Every structure is written in C-alpha cells, then in structure tokens.
Computed example of a mutant assay.
Amino acid sequence: MVLLLLVLAAFLAVAGINGHVVLSEKPNIAASMTSDAGSISNAQLKRLKKLNAQCIMVLGAGIIGTERPTPMLKDRLDTALKLYWAGVSPKILLTGDNGSVHHNELHVMLKYVRKAGVPEADIFCDHAGFSTYDSAARAKQIFRVKRMIVVTQTYHMYRALYDCSENHITALGVGADQQRYSGQLVRDVREVPARLKDFILVQMEEPPKLGGEVIPITGSGVISHGE
C-alpha cells in the first residue's frame, strides 16, 4: 500500500510539473508553420514583430550523414528563414550539438542558412547547445539575448519557452510543424521526463555545461562561426 501511494504521488508530481510547463507557456506560442504556406497570418506576424526580438533561435534536431539536416531540422530552418525574410528579427541564432567530428549539427545548419542568402554577420552559432536547457542558458549568458523568437516543433516548444523564461529571456515561439515526423510518438513520451529534468535544473539554477567568451547578439555573428 505504501509503495502504491509513493508511485501515485510520483505520478501526480510529474503530471503536475508537465501541466505547469505546458499551461504557463502555451500563450507564448504565437504561430505554427504548417504545410500551408500562408499559415502565419498578418496578425501573428504583427505580434512577433512587436516583440522586437534580437534573434530567431533555431534548436538543433539531428543530421543525416555529415551534410544534410533531418526533415525535422530542415523544417525548423525553413521556418526561421521565412521569419527572417519577413523582418521578424535581424539575426538568426543556430544552436546544436557539435560534440564530435562525426556529428556537427552547426556545420550543416550554418551551411543551409548561408545557402539561403543570409549575410554572415546576421548568423550566430552556438556550438555547445547540447540540450534545450543549455541552449537557453547560453543564449542569455554567452549571447546576451533578452528577447527572441524560438523555432522548434510544437511538442518541444513548451519546454524550450519555459527554459527561456527561467533564464530571463522574453520569448515567443513559432512551431515548425510542416509534416508528421517518423517516431513522433516516442518523442512525445520522452518529452514528459525531459520537462521534469529541465524543471529540476531550473530549481537548482544549474549553469550550462560549457561557458565561453561573450559574443553579444547585437554585434556580428562571424566570430561565432568557429571556422
């Protein structure tokens, strides 16, 4: 009986934390880019521009081989580019895992955004975005971001915005939901403990895994490219 009560208490705690993260950040999801090219309305664009965001942050989502983004990451990049060309923000912050020579998300993301014609100075790279929490914490600590647009898929957006909020960044989210992605059920399930993990990290005021030299988002991003 005691064990059953403990399990029930743990379940309720996890459910409560997940509910808190989702409900607190749901109002901050300003739009979602779907397969319909006109899915972001003029009213939504107006809300996004009103934030006066310093950058559009694109969270990494894996690569295929060494040179191609996964479909999920490609959709994030395409969404960010549409926002950039629409004048929502003057800078793009790419953040992902550059932990080994065999898995360099930033190389692929930077190449993709360059090919789209974004000026070098407008592209910032965070090579130590090992997790969503680290990406948000480093956006504040390294890039000195105060206001930004976050681009990821909606299922992941609640946690990303929560991490930004707890790192004192005012953020709005735009979902990159152009298709149904393979393995999405697994991602949905994994997101539950991931929100719990980030909630705990926030309470502990855990610093990001890596620090580094300050590269203000208000300057040029060239120095962050690491080439």
Rank of each mutant, 00 (worst) to 15 (best):
residue 179 Q to I: 05
residue 197 K to L: 07
residue 30 A to R: 12
residue 86 A to P: 01
residue 81 L to V: 02
residue 12 L to Y: 08
residue 23 L to S: 14
residue 9 A to V: 06
residue 168 H to R: 11
residue 64 I to Y: 12
residue 100 S to I: 00
residue 96 G to C: 07
residue 63 I to T: 04
residue 30 A to F: 08
residue 81 L to Q: 02
residue 57 M to V: 13
residue 40 I to Y: 09
residue 57 M to S: 12
residue 85 W to C: 09
residue 28 N to F: 12
residue 64 I to R: 14
residue 124 F to K: 11
residue 31 A to H: 13
residue 102 H to N: 10
residue 12 L to G: 11
residue 64 I to W: 12
residue 33 M to H: 08
residue 174 V to Q: 01
residue 211 G to H: 01
residue 121 A to P: 07
residue 38 G to P: 06
residue 213 E to V: 03
residue 86 A to M: 00
residue 109 M to C: 02
residue 61 A to R: 09
residue 64 I to Q: 15
residue 138 R to C: 01
residue 208 P to G: 01
residue 187 R to A: 11
residue 83 L to V: 01
residue 117 G to M: 07
residue 224 S to T: 08
residue 171 A to C: 10
residue 87 G to H: 02
residue 227 E to I: 13
residue 155 Y to T: 08
residue 92 I to A: 04
residue 121 A to C: 12
residue 206 E to Q: 08
residue 132 T to W: 03
residue 63 I to C: 05
residue 137 A to N: 00
residue 222 V to N: 14
residue 120 E to S: 15
residue 123 I to L: 12
residue 169 I to C: 06
residue 151 V to K: 09
residue 215 I to V: 03
residue 17 I to Q: 12
residue 146 K to F: 04
residue 212 G to C: 00
residue 115 K to D: 13
residue 202 V to A: 03
residue 12 L to E: 15
residue 18 N to F: 13
residue 212 G to H: 06
